[in-house]
């Protein structure tokens, strides 16, 4: 059951924890897991992505083009940036809240949100689009966005793990004092009124 998952976002959005939770869930099932992260300079507001390859001992730690089964996108433009990685049949969850880069605010470069969402919608008719920030704030902190997105993906049935498996993996990855808030974020994500076009 080899499975390749891309998690894409902007530095600071918490993609790393989402990746850790999924890796722990795979580990708990006894599946060999290989992941790769963006750590360092790009963490300061640059593009970041996590790659997870499950049951993949002799595979590249970076998911090759057209090899990804699942996309968890924390941001619309970053979702589009990852499209070359995706299989045509990939399952997707996209957070529709934009993070506008400073250079775009300064008038250098463009941010075409509508084009990005249209393209994603056309490419992946079953994709789920959520307003993650609102849900995360409802759970108590914008930093629970990562777990909200995991919840939405679980709710959409695209993850190779059950909600219980994710919740139990969270217990090993999330700081104990933040666990209750994150569990709430997961439940809210699970029930999020995701839009399917």
């Amino acid at each position: 059951m080899s499975n390749s998952i891309v998690i894409a976002g902007v530095g600071g959005q918490g993609t790393l924890l989402a990746s850790k939770i999924l890796a722990a869930a795979a580990g708990a099932r006894g599946l060999f897991v290989r992941t790769s992260e963006t750590i360092g300079m790009a963490q300061r507001g640059g593009c970041v992505s996590s790659h997870l390859r499950i049951d993949a001992k002799e595979l590249s730690p970076i998911i090759p083009e057209h090899h990804a089964d699942i996309l968890l996108a924390f941001e619309p433009a970053e979702a589009v940036r990852m499209l070359p990685k995706m299989k045509a049949s990939a399952g997707c969850v996209v957070n529709t809240d934009s993070v506008i880069p400073t250079n775009v605010a300064l008038g250098k470069g463009v941010y075409l949100k509508k084009d990005y969402l249209d393209l994603l919608r056309n490419r992946f008719p079953a994709a789920v689009f959520i307003e993650g920030a609102r849900t995360a704030l409802a759970a108590g902190d914008i930093r629970t966005l990562n777990v909200v997105i995991l919840g939405a993906a679980s709710g959409a049935g695209i993850l190779p793990f059950s909600a219980e498996e994710i919740l139990s993996a969270m217990k090993t990855c999330v700081k104990p004092k933040l666990l209750a808030m994150n569990e709430k974020a997961f439940e809210l994500g699970l029930a999020a009124p995701g839009v399917r076009w």
Partner: peptide, 15 residues
């Protein structure tokens, strides 16, 4: 070639 719409460059920035 995967024709994508123009994407913003996202260099790292001071927080």
């Amino acid at each position: 070639a995967d024709a994508l719409p123009q994407l913003p460059v996202r260099p790292p920035v001071l927080c």
